[in-house]
Amino acid sequence: MVARIDNLVTAGTFSLDGGTWELENNVWIVGDDAECIVIDAAHDAAAILKAVGGRKLLGIYCTHAHNDHIGAIAGVQSLTQASAYLHPADDVLWATVYPDAAHLPLANGQRISVAGTELEVIHTPGHSPGAVCFYAASLGSLFSGDTLFHGGPGATGRSYSDFPTIIESITTRLLTLPAATVVLTGHGESTTIGTEAPDLEAWIARGH
């Protein structure tokens, strides 16, 4: 069976630098009827477990470690024992949520296999030091976390973020992908590489 992509929208809060905001997150589940992975276990462990159902959960893969993207990991792990995976450059953020829990590392170029489908880890720092995207070429899809949205790059106005770095990441590692690649974002609607690429100069001029 060919891998499919399921989307679950969960709601909760994001906290950093002394502020807290309400928001909705996209949780992405990639797999078939037998096995799957979760990309960004956000807010609602019960809803994520229901979406996984009886499938074998091979891992929980984090695009970055802001609390809204990892807050449901412990709840999902309590019933599945699935390992969490995160780029180690985001350990400082991980520790604010899970000071006593470990994760396994992700590295640029690493390959993830699920349901006969391969995803490539692309390190895209800027929104956070360890931000990554997951590129599934066979599905024509990029899971961009908070690095690239419909309408531009992710926010860089808070701790551990940097605007020139996110622009470099997007320019050199994402806009080089095929224009038809569907960008499945961490929040809000999807887009494509071809839709976002022409606006690069406008993003730079606008800054963060």
Rank of each mutant, 00 (worst) to 15 (best):
I193G: 00
I39E: 07
G31N: 04
P129G: 13
A202T: 14
G54S: 10
A3E: 12
A131P: 03
G116V: 12
N7Y: 06
I122S: 07
S83F: 06
I29S: 06
A95N: 13
G188P: 03
T117S: 15
A74H: 00
N108C: 11
L57A: 04
T191A: 08
D162V: 00
A205Q: 10
I39P: 02
L184H: 13
T80A: 11
S159G: 10
I166M: 08
T96A: 13
F14N: 05
Y85G: 05
H43C: 03
P105H: 07
D40H: 10
A205H: 01
A180W: 01
H127Y: 03
D17Y: 02
A155W: 08
G130R: 03
D17H: 05
G19Q: 13
G186K: 00
N26L: 06
G59D: 11
G194L: 09
A34M: 12
A131V: 00
G12L: 13
S169I: 01
A82H: 03
S83A: 15
I39R: 03
D44H: 05
A34S: 10
L8R: 10
I39G: 03
H103T: 05
L58V: 10
I112T: 07
E201H: 02
W94M: 10
H127M: 09
V114N: 04
G31A: 09
G75C: 05
A89F: 02
L104M: 11
I48S: 01
G12H: 13
D44M: 07
Q77I: 10
I60D: 09
L139K: 12
A102H: 10
V38R: 01
A51Y: 00
F134D: 12
A82L: 11
G152P: 03
A137L: 08
V183H: 06
D40R: 04
E196C: 04
L174S: 08
I170M: 03
G18F: 03
T124H: 09
L49G: 07
S161D: 08
A95P: 07
H150M: 10
H64I: 06
I70L: 06
G71Y: 00
L106R: 09
V9F: 00
I73V: 15
V121I: 12
S159T: 07
L148K: 06
